[in-house]
Amino acid sequence: MDIAPYLLLATLEGLVQASVLTLTALGLSVVFGTMRVVNVAHGEFFMLGAVGAWVCAMLMPGPPWLGFVTALIVAPAIVGLLAAAADWAILKRIDYDPEATIISTIGLMYIIQQVVLMTFGPNAQAVDAPFYYTIRFPWFGYSSYKLFIVVAAIVLVFALWRLMKGSRVGLLMRATQYDKDTAQNFGIPVDRVYSGVFAVGAMMAAIAGVLVVPNQQAHYLMGHDPLLLSFVVVIVGGLGSIPGTIAAAVLIGLSDGLLSVFFTPTLAKIASTLLVALVLVFKPEGLFGKATR
């Protein structure tokens, strides 16, 4: 058996998965890193992005790319506003208490799920890819849209990196992340930083949801897997570490792609869960995490 075509296909599929996972997990990681909030509703923000893409595709007349571009703008914006409202209405009022935020975001998760179920029904909804072009490899053709996902993820990760490292807003976010009290001692509006970070985290997940929906149908329960995999990535990479999250997402995405093609998807899930267990035992702070601040 010639292994090369399988290896290439598995790598490409792994890269696509890693890209979506990077975006979703980065949102979770940024929120935890800055606010110390474990957002269990993060998968629902992903789902809302996907459902939003379907709604935009339904409502926008004309070619599929028009609805897709609209969705890329509108869905993350609405999800970001919803997240900011949730921060104001719930998280701020419980003073970001770690235990209470877990319980309250579980509640938020169910509320979002049920609202989507009641509004759009239980059926999975397909969305056309914005463009169809097949890239020919010697052994098979591959969807150019899937490679677009990889490129889009790289661009968005770079944009987040620049935001965090090269902007005044990013500086305030990082200062708040390292020491909330000292940040306040220098006039940093920690509550507004938290609200913005929660919105940005949710928007990252929503963008991932918009990007994924031409490959995977939109459904009110589709947020579970991305949430679990994001937790895996964030734990392996190191809570709150952006480089760690990216590295872990690529590692897990690629291993998932390779193991799924050469063995079974179930084995891929077992491997990633085992990896989490090993990291928790031997390097609890994650591969790129710092022990404490």
Partner: peptide
């Protein structure tokens, strides 16, 4: 209570932006 992961310049920038 420095922001240990930030550079010296960034720590000073945090002070400057206050007022």
């Amino acid at each position: 209570r420095l922001f240990a992961e930030l550079t010296v310049a960034e720590n000073l920038e945090i002070g400057l932006q206050t007022r």
